[in-house]
Design a protein around this nucleic acid. Structure first.
Lengths: 146, 146
DNA sequence: GTAAGACATGAACCTGGCTTCAGGTCAAGG
DNA sequence: CCTTGACCTGAAGCCAGGTTCATGTCTTAC
């Protein structure tokens, strides 16, 4: 089953301009064309999923292009592709940990301003040592400031 | 305790140019100066932590500036600050969920290329229905493609 | 046959978040 | 004194990742 760029934009939610940009950057090295018109196949649809995934892992377009070139080269690049995914997995794991610390900071701040609004000022809060904060908030505070 | 820009750069790991840029953008509305030289106090150090946190939550510098202006305005802005942190918390929570799906995709791909390398080709893998994948991998695969 | 709508292209433009540059002030040390 | 090093400024530059623009081609519908 082959799709036009408009259909793919519809399916994926990506703007047409972005899909063309990706193509320009070499992210679909095997894409067919029919008298100039791009024909997206299953391979390209899966490529889009992988692009989204690698982008969120922090990889740049140029390096995603390199990966797509590996895919086009066949079996001799399996180990490089595997190594790339392993690297990205470690990076994403670390990023999730950082995001959890951000979340704890935000949780703490939500509580803080809740209290400040109640008190009408920050005097009590400024003098409050972590030991006297509610259990859950102290945990968040300490994790966020670690 | 007051610090110079160089000390703060040292302490936080941020380049001096970035700290000056933040100042230029109005992120330290109350910072003191001593004959032109910036004097970073506890307030600014905490502001830097908050900036990092809000940036990772996806907030733009302009909006962080607006938040810092609220802080400078005192007690009447507590509820706006609280609302901002609540909004960012929800966004970060959603982002962590997305990152977990990215992680599952990466885990699946690691397994996939491990197998492909072993087999020497992708023939078996391409025909493999999710039900026959190892439990953990199937979970990752299904979560990633949901 | 002609107008609309989806597709195509290359080049220029935009945005956010820094970074670099050219040039200047000031305090301390040799 | 004069050099070094840390600070200052405004303006310009840079990069990634798209987006927009001016034009043009093809198909289909009236």
């Amino acid at each position: 089953m082959k799709y036009t760029i408009g259909q793919v934009a519809e399916m994926t939610g990506l703007p047409i301009s972005t899909l063309r940009y990706y193509d320009r950057e070499g992210l679909f090295p095997n894409m067919e064309r029919c008298s100039g018109i791009r024909k997206f196949g299953e391979q390209e649809i899966e490529a889009i999923r992988v692009i989204e995934c690698l982008k969120k892992s922090g990889l740049e377009i140029k390096q995603i292009k390199r990966f797509m070139a590996w895919c086009a080269q066949g079996a001799q690049t399996y180990s490089m592709r595997k190594a790339l995914f392993e690297e990205r997995r470690a990076i994403v794991q670390a990023e999730i940990e950082r995001m959890n610390r951000v979340l704890d900071m935000l949780t703490f701040k939500c509580w803080y301003y809740e209290q400040a609004g109640r008190d009408g000022n920050e005097d009590r809060l400024r003098r409050l040592p972590p030991e006297q904060m509610p259990e859950e908030i102290r945990r968040a505070y300490e994790n966020a400031h670690a």
